[in-house]
Computed example of a mutant assay.
Amino acid sequence: MTITIIAGARPNFMKIAPIISAIQKAATEGSNISYRLVHTGQHYDQKMSDTFFHELGIPEPHANLGCGGGTQAEQTAAIMVAFEKELIQNPADLVMVVGDVTSTMACSIVAKKLNTKVVHVEAGIRSFDLTMPEEINRMVTDSITDYFFTTTEEASNNLRKAGATNDQIFFVGNVMIDTLLKNQKNFKRPAFFDQLKLNRSGYFVLTLHRPANVDHHHTLKELMHEITANVRDLPIVFPIHPRTARIFSELGISAKNLHIVDPLGYLEFNYLVQHAKAVITDSGGITEETTVMGIPCLTLRNSTERPETVAVGTNELIGTNPRNIRPALDRLFAGQWKKGGIPEKWDGHTAERIVEHLLALYA
């Protein structure tokens, strides 16, 4: 069995690393399984791409399609054109896509049009918010996927409601947590940690990149004011996304406790999260990591495709209204934040289960 694995953006890299390791282990034990890794180039900033390959021990891609930049439509088209040529030249039994980025959707469409079966890892998650590009990517991908690997039973149920059958759905857990648990002992203190005199549980980590929060100058400025004014003068470390940096530079936002830093590698970023008082974010994946590490997380969104991080974990949806920030921070400082737990099968063995199911399907 030959599997073409697609990676395109930072969240993908964290998900493919343990899957590749599990495939390699199965192959050395005599199983008929091999892979070809295709990097679409969707993230072309070194900190957002190359660093993750190095830190997570991911082998060099067999192909890099170099499809970075452009609008979403331009990038989707470029990936489809390039991946069609790649798959024709290097046929596979399965194309494995992960997550919900542009590459996920684009490559799944190409594979199906070339009559190649599609496997979707992290299938079935839904925010039910069609203003989010990722939600469209998820829905399109799952509508043509052959085999679904899900992070929760709720995701499995979403697929059943959409018409998928039980023999297509495999509840395996969260492969990104495999990466987190494997690398936790290797987390690396960033160089600025001591320079900024950061102390354990004595600072906040902030990440923002979603259009609803960063594309409108007034909204971003108001969010930043509420955050910086209500963290009781604790330092805020803001590894700024390239998208956000372009807009942020136009606003002249500054505060004595706000520290803007470049994007961090996986090991440095998660060291920062692990030792923070809390994380303020609009990311989805980070809410999974904070849940497992037991770090309070305030999510500046009105919906989430990862409801288990709220129902079980340490995450709370604060919404996009800046006025909601102060009450949430007041609860945090009052010691009233929930402790949270860890969702079922988020145990570090998800990739092994995925490979076991694939071998059984193609036995």
Rank of each mutant, 00 (worst) to 15 (best):
P190G: 07
A191K: 12
F193D: 08
D194I: 06
D194S: 08
Q195K: 13
L196C: 07
L196V: 11
K197S: 15
L198E: 05
N199G: 13
N199P: 00
S201L: 05
V205I: 12
T207N: 04
R210E: 11
P211S: 15
A212W: 10
A212L: 14
N213M: 09
H217T: 00
H217S: 14
I227Q: 01
T228P: 02
A229E: 08
V231E: 12
L234Q: 13
P235A: 09
V237T: 09
F238G: 02
F238Y: 14
F238L: 12
P242R: 07
P242F: 10
R243Q: 11
T244M: 06
A245H: 07
F248A: 12
S249N: 15
K256R: 11
L258D: 03
L258F: 12
I260G: 00
P263I: 07
Y266K: 04
Y266T: 00
Y266H: 07
F269E: 02
L272T: 07
L272P: 01
V273L: 13
Q274W: 03
Q274F: 04
H275K: 13
A276H: 02
A276R: 02
K277Q: 14
A278I: 04
I280G: 07
I280P: 08
T281S: 13
T281M: 07
T281Q: 03
G284H: 07
G285S: 08
G285W: 02
G285M: 08
I286E: 05
T287G: 09
E288H: 09
E289H: 07
T290E: 03
T291I: 05
T291M: 05
V292L: 05
G294Y: 02
I295C: 02
I295V: 15
P296E: 14
P296T: 11
P296N: 11
C297I: 04
L298K: 12
T299Q: 05
L300H: 10
L300Y: 06
R301F: 07
N302E: 15
S303W: 03
S303Y: 11
P307T: 00
E308C: 00
T309H: 01
T309F: 09
L317M: 12
G319M: 07
G319A: 00
N321Y: 00
P322W: 03
